[in-house]
Amino acid sequence: MADNRSPLEALLVAGAVIACAVGAAWYLTFVFPRQAAQAPIEKSPVRAGAASMLHRPFHYNTPDKNLEAWSERSACIICHSASPHGKDRQVMAVINLHTEFLTCDCCHLKNEHHEKVRFGWVRPPGITVSGKPYGTTIDPSTGLFAQTDDHYSLIAPLHEVNGRWEPFLSFASEKAVALARSYRERKERLSADERTQLVQEAHQGTELKEFVRCSQCHSYKGIMDFYGLGFDQTRAHQLEKLEVSGMLTNYEVFYFPELFEKKFK
């Protein structure tokens, strides 16, 4: 009780209490307001650096849902991005546009496997849709691709396994995706031999030089059955003749590019 006066106890109690008080006051004065001020912003406007603001696309502001869905689920995209063709400056954009609709092995499948496969649609696991794949149907009122909720399906070569048609190359399997991620993360630390070995392992069944040519698909008797894949008649017709009719009818002078002749006959 207070009658047993102890200066030592008083000193210890005062020291402990004041130390706690200083700590709490310091936190509430200097730490808490700063933490609250730096808390993640939930509804703040999206900010971008000057570089991206100065070069943002003028004509496109919608997100690439297809890429968002596949970016971490396709071993090909993990390593090569959605714009994998960069060697030939004048045609790479035209080739790259196909990655929104096709898996890489549609064109880069080894010739010896072509007899075993047929083309069908694949979707990333866990995504359900009700409409037809984007780009297969033309809206007659606008002449543009019809709106749909399926921005994720890609055409891929399939083969029959136990009565089911499955992707010929397992580019989206857990093993392939893990291998690609591992390669992406360790790339800088790998030796040249290790890189070569991993690249060869990852590209079994693919052909990087003797790929499918434009006319093998975009023709009336092409390897791809556009009608069978669900394209409507208008769209299938456009794809079979490479949609060039508009150019031919609207230009008095039409320069057919030599490089297309040379490379994509």
Binding site: H59, Y60, T62, D64, A82, S83, G86, R89, M92, A93, V94, N96, L97, H98, T99, E100, S141, T142, G143, L144, F145, E243, V244, S245, G246, M247, N250, Y251
Partner: peptide, 21 residues
């Protein structure tokens, strides 16, 4: 009802992945 495109530029440019490096 539709955008003007007499040259049919959208034949290629309607694809969002028409991208170069």
């Amino acid at each position: 009802a539709s955008a003007r495109d007499p040259e049919n530029c959208l034949m290629c440019h309607k694809y969002k992945r028409l991208q170069s490096i």
